[in-house]
């Protein structure tokens, strides 16, 4: 894992996410961890921006579990497992066609029973006020 990048604002966080999005290939899986309020949904907004999707469409999928955003370079599936104890991605009714062609971003991946192979982990930590430390590495979160 490379050293975490420190972001000073939500705007900067979104730019970091957008830069990461530009490197993603179809079928990419991102595991986003961090406490409540760390800015995971804001990060997904940056991913959307980087993929050419209207970031204004990105809202929290906590209640609905899955949001799908189309219209960009790749479709973006935004999954939030916060309300679940344990989860299996296969049980979420995700469209296999979309997950194969798009980017799957999963909030609260510690709920996953099985972590998909080849996933990229993103850890966001609150450093006070608007500052966040963002670490990105290949493999799961180590939980």
């Amino acid at each position: 894992m490379s050293a975490p990048v420190v972001s000073g604002s939500e705007r900067e966080t979104r730019a970091i996410a957008a830069a990461l999005a530009a490197t993603l290939a179809p079928g990419a899986v991102l595991l986003l961890s961090g406490d409540l309020g760390a800015g995971k949904t804001a990060f997904v907004r940056g991913l959307a921006e980087g993929l050419g999707i209207d970031p204004g469409e990105v809202t929290s999928p906590t209640f609905t579990l899955v949001h799908q955003y189309d219209g960009g370079r790749l479709p973006l599936l935004h999954v939030d497992l916060y309300r679940l104890e344990t989860a299996d991605l296969d049980e979420l009714g995700l469209d296999a066609d979309v997950t194969g062609k798009g980017v799957l971003a999963v909030e609260w991946p510690d709920r996953l029973a099985r972590v998909p192979a080849g996933a990229v982990s993103v850890r966001i930590e609150d450093r006070g006020a608007d500052a966040r430390a963002i670490g990105v590495w290949h493999g799961d979160t180590g939980k």
Binding site: L36, T41, T59, S60, T62, R83
Partner: peptide
Amino acid sequence: GRTRDDAAGEAYDK
């Protein structure tokens, strides 16, 4: 108008 992030009920739950 709509929420740009969390729903109000979701914020209550969290």
